Amino acid sequence: MMDKLTRDDLYSLEKYAEVRPQFRADVMKHKRERVVPVGPNVTLHFEDRLTMQYQIQEMLRVERIYEAEGIQDELDAYNPLIPDGSNFKATMMVEFDDVEERKLELARLIGIEDRTWVQVSGFDRVYAIADEDMERDTDEKTSSVHFMRFELTPDMVAAARSGAAISVGVDHENYRHQLEPLPQAVRDSLAEDLS
């Protein structure tokens, strides 16, 4: 299980300014093995403690937050996206470059977040528990960003930790794509989220 972040894990604004170039480079390298394109318009960004520390540090930097209450608000917002040892957590991005196409497609893709899945080889698909913090769909369209949790059984966790292949996909009536199996480096990085 990954520990949640505390104030003691964060750099001060001054220290972050010093270490940011190297820290950012390290995080970008780490993220490359945690970003999974599912078809041409959906990307899953699998989150972990390091990606969330980076997100918090960047928010503190941009917003110039240095007071304890503001720092705690950021920790409270992003800590839920750190895996708990029995799950994967991801940010789903639904992306269309053209504004008009985006409007049309987001209307066609209502519910896509509930039809997104992860599968450990030898087991059933696990569909996402999406947007636990707030509803992001309306009657007219889905959001272009969703937060999701894929809760695995103990047997799935054990299999993934032992090297079983992992696949991901979307099974929505207007968007069906999958990636099976995940590349080895991505699979290995995700397996580290499990305990």
Rank of each mutant, 00 (worst) to 15 (best):
V168H: 00
V168I: 07
H146Q: 03
L152H: 11
D188A: 15
E135D: 13
F147D: 10
E140Q: 05
F147A: 08
V168M: 15
N174M: 08
S144E: 15
S189H: 00
G163P: 06
A159G: 06
K141I: 14
A191Q: 03
R136W: 02
T142L: 09
K141Y: 14
R187F: 05
S143M: 07
Q178T: 13
S167V: 09
V157N: 00
R187M: 05
G169S: 09
D137V: 13
Y175I: 07
T142C: 06
R136P: 05
E140M: 04
F150P: 04
E135N: 12
E192L: 15
N174H: 03
K141Q: 14
S144C: 13
V170A: 09
G169Q: 13
L179E: 09
A164M: 02
V170D: 01
V157P: 01
M156I: 08
L152E: 06
M148E: 12
E151F: 08
L179W: 10
R187C: 05
A160V: 00
S144I: 07
S162L: 04
T153E: 12
S167Q: 00
A185R: 15
R149G: 12
I166N: 07
I166D: 03
S162C: 08
V186Y: 00
L152R: 09
D137C: 03
R149L: 14
Q184P: 07
H146Y: 02
D137M: 07
L182D: 02
A165Q: 14
S162Y: 03
P181G: 03
E192G: 02
T142F: 00
S162T: 02
I166M: 00
Q184G: 07
G163M: 02
D193V: 03
F147L: 13
R149H: 08
E192Y: 09
T153S: 13
S162V: 00
L152T: 06
A159M: 06
D171S: 09
R136S: 07
P154G: 06
S144R: 13
G163H: 02
M148I: 10
E140D: 10
N174D: 01
M148T: 11
M148A: 06
T142Q: 06
R187P: 02
A158D: 12
N174K: 05
